[in-house]
Design a binder for these strands. Structure first.
Lengths: 368, 368
DNA sequence: GTTAGCACTCTCACGGCGCGAGTGCCAACG
DNA sequence: CGTTGGCACTCGCGCCGTGAGAGTGCTAAC
């Protein structure tokens, strides 16, 4: 499908116009608003052709034209202009990202909130599920006669702990034995290898009469299952109601409900590589519930096995350019924060402060 | 204000009717539906009196009557019948509560979800802020030459950890020194006592050239501030749209937005004692945004200094009896789960299973 | 004190109508 | 042959008046 220059210009003008006004755009609006040097009649005939190409449509005879999903697709692939973030926006991102990392979960939560604030669309953030995660190390720390802490390290970047009370006395020797046994038998294996027989054997070997081995093993299993689960963080869902296409509450609810269901955001389209942005327009979505919404997702890879997806969902009438560039900027900052080198661990003074030029490398994002 | 028996019966009937239908109830509906042995005309005159008492009102002449907030208040204080949970509901709660505790935050999240599912109203769950929390203990565990884990214990029931990478070598001796110093100087003090001078002194005493003391101190401060913050967990907000009183999206949004703002749920009315339920009707709410919604909150105290509030927000036309008893049941289960004795730490086989009779002690909940 | 009857009031749903926006087509122009 | 102005036509949307229905308050009778 090749469009001549003027058709492109008109398509772009229609979309730009429609994106801001949310109302079908007619020939007159174009000739007065945008810098097109032709008459309304000419535009009408051009628009009629664009309509027969399937890029525009009219909601009813005698209304202006509205872009079709195919029209948006052409726009996104070929016509979209690069959007530059304002200094203010970059400052907002940098400031938000300067925060400490307490937990990855919290960071994702904050990121989602930031994105929805910056784009005015509902946003979600999640880490890709890590199949076959294993525990790399156990530590046991006695607190008092009946209480101790298990410390579990997951693949070099995450540490989880649990405080365990036992009804009976837990001796330091038992802790030492458990440490040796768990580090020997429970590290490097996935959660389904932690069988009842393995647990029973460990219990025997540790001479554990208090039943704490089972608790620690149970905790390990929960943990690994939890890593697989990847809770998505959703925020700004209320923003949806700002857009006239979701005036119908039921429609908005269906979208929000779809996003709220734990396993759904994970299945949304995602870019193939870290740093890319993927745009999915209306019916391109596999999920029935999103057939007349669009999804823009950015991906950010950090370290060997952490992938973060940050996305927004909104009406097909969406300022794709703005949204994509904002998402890209934010995920880049996020990647910098998550990378083992540049994280917020040391010297929480300046991180992000100098990073205003974080978007400098100006590679295109994927547009498919 | 004393009402004779028949007035009470009529008020109760109007409310019960209005709660289910959401439509003004007229004299005929009462005489046919409920077991009142008088004619419509009698009911009309009684209703007129109830109206002059300020307990009922008509949306307009020639519509049925609707309870006023004062009417609901009388109902809640004097007329409400005890609601028994169905076996199914109790089972649902017990099953949900049988889950492991990974984090208090997660538990609150799950509880909120459970409540909103069981009541069909938006629900929130939060812990009361603990002023002046302190750290009771530090542990340092070396991982490799540049990496170690700080383990921080908060008041005997919570443990937090952080993995710290240092650009330079962190010797085991440094960790030992830090352990001694932090346990000596940073335990038992609030976060505002962790001054820059204290940190600098500790840094010197530890002979810390890598700057890790500052990171550990920063982490400690963040942690204590975080405990003060008490993030509320909100869920089921979409439920609000099911109720005709929130047909106006703007109104629903204002309520949801109010609840979403971090510090607001903390300020909501709360029962004075653990185990109580507090009901706040419409204009009794101090918050402007909730002036025509009602709030029902249950409180659950666990251990010395953990207080959990679980509440729902909905239209003033709310089945207070059902909601209150469900909240009460759930918080009781929660309290059992959180109490140091009966928590999910040991032997995760049966907890909650035997607890069907958890509501047995049948003390009244507070109705004010 | 209670009841039946009746006139009155007010809301809400429905249908017809006119306005305005925007189009498609056509004839004229460079 | 592409471009332009003019014109008749179409269609959605908001406005308004009307009628049905529900529920009341009042009054007279039991």
């Amino acid at each position: 499908m090749e469009l001549d220059g003027r058709k492109k210009e008109i398509l772009r003008a229609v979309i730009d116009n429609y994106v801001t006004t949310a109302e079908p755009v007619g020939s007159k609006a174009l000739v007065s608003g945008d810098g097109l040097r032709v008459s309304a009649a000419t535009i009408r005939s051009e628009m009629a052709e664009l309509e027969s190409l399937g890029l525009l449509e009219q909601p009813h005879t005698s209304a202006g034209r509205v872009p079709t999903p195919a029209g948006y697709r052409v726009y996104v692939n070929e016509l979209m202009r690069e959007h530059k973030l304002s200094v203010d926006e970059m400052e907002t991102v940098n400031r938000a990202m300067r925060k400490r990392i307490l937990e990855l979960d919290e960071l994702l939560d904050d990121t989602g909130r930031l994105v929805s604030r910056l784009t005015s669309y509902p946003a979600y953030a999640l880490t890709a599920p890590r199949g076959g995660a294993t525990i790399s190390r156990y530590d046991f720390i006695g607190v008092d006669q009946n209480t101790f802490i298990v410390l579990v390290m997951l693949g070099g970047d995450t540490v989880k702990n649990k405080l365990i009370h036992s009804p009976s006395h837990v001796s330091p020797e038992l802790l030492t034995r458990m440490s040796a046994l768990f580090n020997a038998s429970f590290t490097g294996i996935t959660e389904d290898a932690m069988t009842a027989t393995l647990i029973a054997a460990t219990e025997r070997a540790a001479a554990d009469s208090a039943g704490v081995v089972a608790v620690v093993a149970g905790f390990s299993i929960e943990l690994l299952m939890d890593v697989k689960r990847t809770q998505p963080h959703l925020s700004g869902t209320l923003n949806l109601f700002d857009y006239p296409e979701y005036r119908d509450v039921g429609k908005a609810r269906r979208v929000i409900r779809y996003l709220s269901e734990e396993h759904n955001p994970v299945r949304l389209p995602a870019p193939a590589r870290g740093g890319d942005v993927k745009i999915t327009i209306g019916p391109e979505n596999l999920a029935e519930e999103l057939r007349d919404s669009s999804v823009v997702v950015a991906r950010c890879d950090a370290g060997a096995d952490i992938q973060v997806m940050v996305g927004v969902v909104g009406p097909t009438r969406m300022d794709y350019s703005k949204v994509a560039s904002r998402l890209e900027y934010i995920t880049r900052a996020l990647g910098w924060l998550l990378s083992p080198g540049g994280d917020g661990n040391l010297l929480p003074g300046e991180p992000g402060g100098e990073q205003t030029d974080i978007l400098e490398g100006d590679e295109d994002f994927e547009r498919n």
